[in-house]
């Protein structure tokens, strides 16, 4: 049993799908009519973690890593094959009303609103399904309309909205019942940069106002950087990393980035620097170098002793590059 006050506690969770397999071609198709062969695929293969109240956690992994499957088990849509899941003390697969009223799942590119009707009608439907008292409903609806800048959008039939507008309305519909646990699966996918930023700041604001716990997946590292201090990285259904976003680079990146400022920088000097390390880029008077992690101290010492260095910083590479490195790692 995990910490008593954890909002989400997952222990050794597994989900195995059985997938039909057959070779291409008519013969194989005919054979599979008689004897269907299936293969067991573990989409989630023994993961454990806990999430505390009010935490915003980034859930990262490449396509097919098991992120969505995990979110669906956490919200009670899928039954786990084995292992334990507790959300707010409930087992989600039992679909208890007390739990479902307190959580929400938003999936980018999916639509739950009535297509031909204005969003306000769908809001009304959710009010009735979740039995939100009229006053609370009006207050929350207006708060969401304000925060997400929905104004005139909620009066238009959903089919007439743009992708970004629809996503904002979807998010509003999913939060009307004031959930304290939010599962956001790619909430910014396909949105333009402005809209992404808007959704991001909204999630941060909702988390601040309502103290909600958020588990978020995204392909956009900007989302994760802006919202999550902690990240859980899964790959091939297993947890590769669980900790501070800042520590991710130290743990996974095989390289360091060195930025040197040199007042008398010229082409000849850049060529010389090429001998020390890989030159990633140059600006007016500074050069960005990449070196293997182990070589970083040696290269730094050489730079300082041999050149007239005005300034020098050693950093982990940008988080986006780190994530790429992480996913390049094969499972044990």
């Amino acid at each position: 049993m995990a910490a008593v006050d954890a909002v989400i506690a997952v222990e050794d969770l597994r989900k195995v799908f059985s997938v039909p397999v057959r070779d291409a071609g008519l013969k194989a198709a005919a054979r599979s009519l008689v004897r269907r062969r299936t293969r067991e695929v573990a989409a989630v293969d023994g993961i454990s973690f806990t999430i505390d109240p009010g935490e915003v956690v980034g859930f990262l992994g490449p396509n097919g890593a098991g992120k969505t499957t995990t979110l669906k088990m956490l919200s009670g849509l899928l039954h786990p094959t084995s292992g334990q899941v507790h959300v707010l003390g409930h087992r989600p697969q039992r679909r208890e009303r007390a739990l479902l009223r307190q959580l929400t799942l938003v999936m980018g590119n999916r639509n739950q609103l009535q297509w031909d009707l204005p969003a306000l009608d769908s809001f009304e439907l959710n009010r009735a399904i979740y039995r939100i008292p009229p006053r609370e409903f009006t207050q929350m609806r207006d708060e969401l309309i304000d925060l997400l800048d929905l104004g005139p959008l909620v009066h238009k039939p959903v089919r007439n909205l743009s992708l970004g507008e629809r996503m904002k309305v979807e998010i509003a519909a999913a939060l009307l019942h004031r959930p304290v646990v939010l599962f956001l699966d790619e909430p910014t996918i396909g949105l333009d940069v402005t809209m992404q930023r808007r959704v991001r700041s909204f999630v941060a604001e909702y988390n601040r106002r309502h103290g909600a716990s958020v588990l978020l997946t995204s392909h956009y590292m900007a989302d994760v950087r802006a919202l999550c201090r902690r990240v859980i990285v899964i790959h091939h259904g297993r947890v590769l990393f669980d900790g501070d976003l800042a520590a991710l680079g130290a743990r996974f990146s095989t390289d360091k980035t060195i930025v040197v400022r040199l007042p008398d920088l010229d082409a000849a000097m850049i060529a010389r620097l090429g001998a020390y390390a890989t030159v990633l880029g140059t600006e007016a008077d500074s050069v960005t170098l990449r070196v293997p992690r182990a070589d970083a101290p040696g290269v730094t010492a050489r730079l300082l002793s041999e050149l007239a260095v005005a300034d020098l910083t050693v950093e982990d590479p940008p988080i986006d590059d780190v994530i790429e490195d992480v996913f390049a790692v094969e499972p044990p």
């Binding site: 669906k72 919200s75 009670g76 849509l77 479902l100 959580l103 929400t104 799942l105 999936m107 399904i129």
Partner: peptide, 10 residues
Amino acid sequence: TLDYLLLKPE
């Protein structure tokens, strides 16, 4: 795509 239906507390 039964997901949203199953999310509802009913």
